[in-house]
Design a protein around this nucleic acid. Sequence first.
RNA 1: GCCGAGGUGGCGGAAUUGGUAGACGCAGUGGAUUCAAAAUCCACCGGUGGUGACACUGUGCGGGUUCAAGUCCCGCCCUCGGUACCA
Length: 953
Amino acid sequence: MQTIYDPAKIEQATQAHWETVKTFKVTEDAAKEKFYCLSMFPYPSGKLHMGHVRNYTIGDVIARYQRMLGKNVLQPMGWDAFGLPAENAALKNKVAPAGWTYANIDYMKVQLKRLGFGYDWDRELATCQPDYYKWEQWLFTELYKKGLVYRKHAVVNWDPVDQTVLANEQVIDGRGWRSGALVERREIPQWFVKITDYADELLDEIDHLEGWPDQVRTMQRNWIGRSYGVQMDFAVQGRTNAAGAGSAGAAAVQGRDCSDNPAAFPPSLEVRRTNAAGAGRDRSIRSSAFTPSLGGRSAGAAVIEDSAESLTIYTTRPDTLMGVTYVAVAGEHPLALQAAEGNAELTAFIEECRQGGTSEADLETIEKKGMALGIDAIHPVSGEAVPIYAANFVLMGYGTGAVMAVPGHDERDHAFAHKYGIPIKQVIHPADGSTLDIQAAAYIEKGVLKDSGPFNDLTSEAAFDAIAEWLQARGKGKKTKNFRIRDWGVSRQRYWGAPIPMIHCEQCGIVPVPLEDLPVVLPEEIVYDENTINPIKQNPEFSDCSCPECGGPAQRETDTFDTFMESSWYYARYTCPGADAMLDARASYWLPVDHYVGGIEHAVLHLLYARFYHKLLRDAGLVENNEPFTRLLTQGMVVADTYYREGADGARHWFNPAEVEVERDEKGRPLTAVLPADGRPVVIGGIEKMSKSKNNGVDPQSLIDRYGADTVRLYTMFTSPPDQSLEWNDEGVEGAHRFLKRIWAVAFDHVDEIKGVNESLQAGRTTFQVDWKLLQKEQSDARREIHLTLNQALYDYEREQFNTVVSACMKIVNLIYKIPGVAAVTSDDAKKAPTLNVLFRMRQEAMGFVLCLLGPIAPHITHHLWSSLGYGDDILNSDWPRPDEEALKQETIQYVVQVNGKVRAKIQAPVEADKEAVEAIARANENVRRFIGEAQVRKVIVVPNKLVSIVAK
RNA sequence: GCCGAGGUGGCGGAAUUGGUAGACGCAGUGGAUUCAAAAUCCACCGGUGGUGACACUGUGCGGGUUCAAGUCCCGCCCUCGGUACCA
């Protein structure tokens, strides 16, 4: 009697079983090999989206696979609970961010459980809980004591109407998202963590991250961007009032320096330049620091005392030095501000420079504009005066806001020089002696120096050293190493985050909050509306405090941490829930994470910050290894079709794919899309990442309700390989569901047929003596095919290509349907034949393969069928399948025969045939002889077990 | 702009890493079953020519290396992700 596949029923029963047995609760067990499998925790945005489902299914498949291999598997889950969306929701719905967040967590947790993920929920954490962020605050104060934390000014997006700082996401086309006002750049004091102190280690250890995708490793290398170059000094000379400019400049810079710890003055900036030839070669990174002669302030820099003030320049192309024809500084640079006094035009330009966003993409794509300051920089070699420009693409906050320019050998400098009539000088010539028009285009390759005074005729490589030595000998510069990466700015001017545990005391300056006063708790019971966008700023109840050192009145820091701070160490905290310390000894059993799974969008920031944090934890004596994540899988995005109509104002109204009907031609190509609601057409907008803004999301909950968790899991695993984007398709979900019904049907047909025929199989015993030799050739061919397919699936599990694991399962099920001989048996006598028992055994074996292979992917149905087939109570405790070597053996091998590169025949050759024998069989083939014809055979290549290639002319 | 990834049938994708292009699935077409439908099962399914065996052609575009190229090299085009305050 076959039962009907009812996913809701069997999934509930299976989950109840896991709950009762506490299947996924784990503890440290020194006797077993541990495996820590982690998926990036979600932001509790409200409900799960398909990206979550995909991420957590991949993680769960890996965790269950490792468990079936016999390991002690830890798979935890938690919540990245601080962040901007909670504040946005609070403004919209007039609810406090905390309540909104906790409600979302409750709902999403139910959804995760419904999907059957094998988490140890006893380890759950939320980053907004004070007993979590307490330790992050503690570590921050420790880092401060070590000198790894400092304060400096940094640029933010400022909305002049709402009087608030905006995230990049809240700046739309250069305007504030709520006010619509033009956004300005502003500089305010902020906290920084010195990731640059670890830049060398973070870079060098990428080489050892063999379990990471090359793509991510390359991105991190480029992000850290170590380069070797020359740092040098340009003296500044005022054309009208040099002395005045000098003192004003120095004073302004002192005013900017808000560091309470002079030794922690930021390392010099970097402004990135990459030549158009791109792709990692000849990258030219140049930076400069405006260095008043304050002595020792510029960390690691040569102290150059030549003139009252100077601009320190870093370049990876010192060979182009003699081609410098101007210097550019930021609008807010002291030199620019000083020059603008009494100069309305320049003042207006500087004001213009303040507008626009702060993101790298904004800065690089804006129209490059500048204005001469009327003062000059003195070239360190030639002594020539070159003009200093204020330019809108140079940022004060990144380093100290000045760059040198070589229009002849840098594309952006070339364009800028063209626009403002600045001379373009060619000092590098192609090594092959060819000539080119430097006025038409910059020459960015390396070559041979000309018009370079003492350095003429040197190659670029030789000139690098020669110029560096020349400058060093005269105290004007030196060779140096630079990084593209900047220190990590962790201050956010937002309410919903972990408070930065620092106190400002008029007497004692900056004082970190001592451990006994931690955590600094963020007030959660607050009113949240337009008037109190940030309820802890200007809130005396929160900010007034007494100084831990002198006891006098003091003010708390009201900025909160970047949420990357919380997400940089949660993986470690999972290993020791409830610990009365940041971490305890349990961390050393579980860490590092063996396998980490998350979105490719985190390839740089989160994954780099977490690596950095792990090293901070190591240096605080809390973990014992150097890297947090041994193996990494970055999954692709979930994408879907989009449909829209344009309104009268040009605004697009997006329709969910579920509301749209697509008409196709006889081949299935989409022709038009209409909205059945009004029968009128909509525009097909192409395939995009599922998002609220494009209204192309699919709600996983409705799919789970309709098809069950196993179907949703199977579909997401089957449709794309994990690291590629997954294109949504409703019919595909049907297909996945159909396959599960097919397995269900074949399993219960099998159970019915073996009843009363084979007691051993019925009892699930698979160890009775089977004489496989009883199989006829086509039957043993089928069995061989099944074992070959199993082998393929095992290989695919190892390389984590789960879509082809599913393919293999489908193939095996198709083969089971077609096992020759078994279907035709109807009479009772035939059912008792010994061959039939062997065929039943063969089918039982194949079913076992499918259930095990599919177990991690569709855990509920496989759990149920496992016991229906009599195998036992829990598939998770079964042995992982291996193919039978005997079953794989064959007598002949198929060879492909090519003549002049084209396939002309397929031949069978005995396994033991040598190359000559195989060649002889190939040449005897009629079609092969036809294509060789009269031509002479010049060469024959025989690839063992594969092909014969005959070259004839 | 810069860094990274990807372009293979109508669609998602496969090709054990230089060796039969299109596995597996979706859609489609034809058939079986059914009073009918759904469900299920079977067959076909890149293009052109041919009744057929088969031939030619075909992996974004243009070149190249090789007995052999989706895969390697050079030069382009297009799409997507990141770009430091979205998470």
